[in-house]
């Protein structure tokens, strides 16, 4: 079983699939001192800045809203505070600290204030590394990857970002499409007639 197969296997029950080569998208916008658009309840201001910038690298603003527009940083803050048990909180914050340490060591700056290219490069390194090590997970529940059974910080962050983003109004209605009341089910329709993927 190669890594790709392993990933596909893991991904199944959750509806994840691995497709396509890695291509890094171009980010819009120029470098500005990052600001928070909410008051964190769980993260320190420094941690919160990192989370916001990282979420935006994972799901950037393009011609449609990005993670920050969609309120993903506040969503992740809420999950950490209310949903995560203590052990997961500790693991996640440690992952976050290690990630930032590496940014400081490599670029001499905390992740949040690194340049866009630097941010992408660091994310790419962690992301590829994590996916190459991941080897199957549970068939129910959340992404569990990593040969040591742990969740690599970057994938956990990616999962939280996607969850927060695609359950947000912006993500569900502007990037994908959403209809609360679709009407009678039509089982076999040309994709061209439907357009984009359904958010749910």
């Amino acid at each position: 079983m190669n890594r790709r197969e392993a990933l596909q296997r893991t991904a199944l029950a959750l509806g994840y699939a691995v497709t396509g080569p890695a291509l890094i998208g171009m980010l819009n916008g120029c470098k500005a001192a990052p600001e928070l658009n909410y008051t964190p309840q769980f993260f320190t201001p420094e941690q919160a800045l990192l989370i916001a910038e990282l979420a935006e690298v994972l799901v950037p603003k393009t011609d449609t809203p990005g993670a920050k527009d969609a309120g993903v940083p506040a969503f992740i803050d809420g999950i950490l505070k209310e949903v995560y048990p203590q052990a997961d909180k500790d693991r996640f914050t440690k992952g976050l600290t290690d990630f930032d340490e590496e940014a400081k060591k490599t670029y001499g700056e905390p992740f949040a204030t690194c340049s866009t290219d630097e941010k992408i490069a660091l994310v790419k390194k962690h992301h590829e590394d994590a996916l190459s090590k991941s080897s199957g997970g549970g068939s129910v529940g959340w992404w569990r990857a990593g040969s040591d059974g742990g969740k690599p910080f970057i994938l956990e962050m990616k999962e939280l970002t996607l969850l927060g983003f695609f359950t947000s109004q912006a993500g569900a209605t502007q990037v994908l499409q959403y209809n609360q009341v679709p009407g009678p089910y039509k089982g076999c329709v040309p994709l061209a007639e439907v357009g984009k993927a359904w958010a749910t």
Partner: peptide, 14 residues
């Protein structure tokens, strides 16, 4: 659904 994205090799705009 979009949830497949976690395991996709891409991130960002792609």
């Amino acid at each position: 659904s979009w949830a497949r994205g976690v395991a996709e090799m891409s991130f960002g705009a792609d």
